[in-house]
Amino acid sequence: MDTKMQPQLLFFDIDGTLLSNVTHQIPESALNAIAAAQKNGHLAFINTGRTFRTMPAFLKDLGFDGFLCGCGTRIVCHGETLLAHSLSEEERSRIIDLIKEWQIEAFLEGSEDVYCQRSDYRQKVMNIVRASFNKKGLGLSKFIEDRNFVFDKFVFVSDNPANSDAFIRRITSFIDVIDRGKGMYECVPKGFSKASAMQLLSEHLNISMDNTWAFGDSSNDLPMFEVAAHGIAMGDHSSVLEPFSEMITDTVDNDGIAKALSHFGLI
């Protein structure tokens, strides 16, 4: 495939795609390969469910052409913010009311901070994640019970299927709910996704969606794979990506990014 004449748009998920789940770093092979692709005239973007605030800070200094964050709720290209969408005051209030009513354990993610409940969570995993946020200076400014903050999306982990099912039924009119497995749900304003962000960026840059490449590993990458011309699933990946994958490359730790970019002649 000769892709050198036309710029290609490369979209990378973070965890399990760029970042090793073992070392929590980007392998040097991936960094070098992405830089080589950019030198060939292609553009590289991070496309993540994380908000810009909760994305690892070091990723912002690695030379990416932009960031598609919060499942499409914020788009930054070459330092310019193309889109920044938050839930409305009415939507935010409704969500917090329902969280209380159905005893849902959630993290509310905004552009300024991530917001946790004031008391300890019932679930050990939630307290572990909260501690990791706190270590990075996140989740300390305000609490869910305070209500007077803005957020873009949220995640919750269920330890009560009946309650979580009831909660989901009451938000699906204005929220798209992504089942991440193991009782974890990612909740995004309707109409926003990793795919919608790719399409908006494609229009902004006047580069056809025929020239788009999605690199991912998990179920929330599915919208990205559905619209990309080329889907590259990492070695460890959710099976939902396979029908939309042009290639299953190696794992991130075994140079999967570099191998895929080389295989398709992007470097």
Results as ranks from 00 to 15, higher is better:
Asp2Asn: 15
Lys4His: 15
Met5Lys: 15
Met5Cys: 06
Gln8Asp: 06
Phe12Ile: 12
Ile14Glu: 05
Thr17Asp: 03
Leu18Lys: 00
Leu18Ala: 00
His24Trp: 04
Gln25Phe: 09
Ile34Cys: 10
Ala35Lys: 13
Ala37Arg: 11
Ala37Glu: 01
Ala37Pro: 01
Gln38Pro: 07
Asn40Trp: 09
Gly41Trp: 05
His42Val: 00
Phe45Arg: 09
Phe45Thr: 00
Ile46Lys: 04
Thr48Arg: 11
Thr48Lys: 07
Gly49Phe: 12
Gly49Ser: 02
Thr51Ala: 10
Thr54Tyr: 02
Thr54Phe: 01
Phe58Thr: 14
Gly63Phe: 08
Phe64Trp: 09
Asp65Asn: 14
Gly66Ser: 10
Arg74Gln: 14
Cys77Ser: 15
His78Phe: 05
Leu83Gly: 04
Glu91Asp: 14
Glu91Met: 12
Arg92His: 05
Ile96Pro: 01
Leu98Arg: 03
Leu98Lys: 09
Ile99Gly: 10
Glu105Gly: 08
Glu105Ile: 07
Leu108Tyr: 09
Gly110Ala: 07
Ser111Leu: 03
Cys116Pro: 08
Gln117His: 07
Gln117Asp: 00
Arg118Ser: 14
Ser119Tyr: 07
Tyr121Arg: 04
Arg122Ser: 11
Gln123Lys: 01
Lys124Gln: 15
Lys124Cys: 06
Asn127Asp: 03
Ile128Ala: 01
Arg130Ser: 06
Ser132Lys: 11
Ser132Pro: 07
Phe133Asp: 00
Gly137Ile: 05
Leu140Lys: 13
Arg147Gln: 06
Phe149Gly: 05
Phe149Trp: 08
Lys153Tyr: 01
Val155Asn: 12
Phe156Gln: 13
Val157Phe: 05
Asn160Gly: 00
Asn160Val: 14
Pro161Cys: 08
Pro161Lys: 15
Arg169Leu: 06
Ile171Leu: 02
Thr172His: 11
Phe174Met: 07
Ile175Trp: 02
Val177Tyr: 08
Met184Ile: 14
Met184His: 09
Val188Gln: 07
Pro189Glu: 01
Pro189Thr: 11
Ser193Gln: 12
Ala195Asn: 10
Ser196Gln: 08
Ala197Glu: 03
Ser202Val: 12
Leu205Cys: 10
Ile207Gly: 11
Ser208Leu: 01
Phe215Trp: 03
Asp217Cys: 00
Asp217Pro: 03
Leu222Glu: 05
Glu226Ala: 05
Gly231Ile: 04
His237Asp: 04
Glu242Ala: 11
Phe244Glu: 02
Ser245Trp: 13
Asp255Phe: 08
Gly256Asn: 07
Ser262Leu: 13
His263Gln: 13
His263Glu: 02
